[in-house]
Design a protein around this nucleic acid. Sequence first.
DNA 1: GGATACATGTAAGATGTTACATGATTGT
DNA 2: ACAATCATGTAACATCTTACATGTATCC
Lengths: 181, 181
Amino acid sequence: MTQASSLEFALIGLLKQKAQSGYDLRKAFTTTPMRHFSDSPGSIYPALRRLQTRKWISVSKDASGRKRQLFRVTQAGERAFLEWLQTPVTREDVIWRIDTVFIRFAFQGDNVPRNVSLRFLDQFEEQLVSYTRELRQYAEESGLACSSTTGALAFASGVEGYQSQLAWTRQARKKLMEASS
Amino acid sequence: MTQASSLEFALIGLLKQKAQSGYDLRKAFTTTPMRHFSDSPGSIYPALRRLQTRKWISVSKDASGRKRQLFRVTQAGERAFLEWLQTPVTREDVIWRIDTVFIRFAFQGDNVPRNVSLRFLDQFEEQLVSYTRELRQYAEESGLACSSTTGALAFASGVEGYQSQLAWTRQARKKLMEASS
DNA sequence: GGATACATGTAAGATGTTACATGATTGT
DNA sequence: ACAATCATGTAACATCTTACATGTATCC
């Protein structure tokens, strides 16, 4: 079995906050800015099935009138989730999966000590610094920067995006340390 | 047949610049900041096959020693490509496919008149403005902003990202108009 | 009584990832 | 000769999208 998808971990994160049904989880994705994930039944229900197969969540019937299935996280599920939250930020994350970096950070608050989040921010910052440096170097070598085609502008937007995230890591670190007091 | 993927259009964009082999295209994805796309043979070669099925590209053997297949864009391919470049930016693009917005913009330079790109930027800006407004409203209503958990910080990073892109659209418009002279 | 929201699923299809597989050419 | 790079592919697998399908409870 492969590594679970970010959707599956996000579902665990939500279920850890509160035991919920598949329908509830779908609504969480439609009504909050976690829109990032699709709310289609064709993605949620199979993902819940997979989590059951892994024994990371368990089912129980809802007491209330409606015929709902309530899912809750098992201990094994929690272990896997905590590990996922804390996996180091890699160069590959920055290039291909930057959104999951933020999702992991978002779920850290309720689940790991603050100093883990601070270390996580350090790693993220380091990767951002090294990758933007790489991009700038590429631009210089290829002479991209001086031309003003839409291609160069799009490239600039990429760099600026990373820059803005870099600024965010610093701000976030400050806010997180303030909140400790 | 469904809508072609952004990978397929990106391949066309590269082939429009220069007739190339599958291997060349793979290298373009590994050695330039178009890293966004995977350079695995398992994605490129099947995509080229699909484009051939659509009759959007044609093959010819390379004259040089090696046994390479050179692909070039057909007229039908060019038509489809130009249409893709100009499709209006939607709210859904901003939420789920923002990277393809930039890819389309990047390819516009060599392929559509500047005023089309300017209109494209207008649409993009409009969508960014309306979506950030939405996000801010959500934050206010849910009382997210005042809490300082990692969740709220991650949310803030999303908003700041859109903000930075908004600033970029304005800068890009200015640069594009300067370049007209 | 009818509309809307609740609630759970399946089926077909496309795309993409990883890993495997093969062979030719070039440089040293 | 040998390694590296050129060059093209296939197979298995997982995931996700779209669309279809079904039935219940609640509100007006």
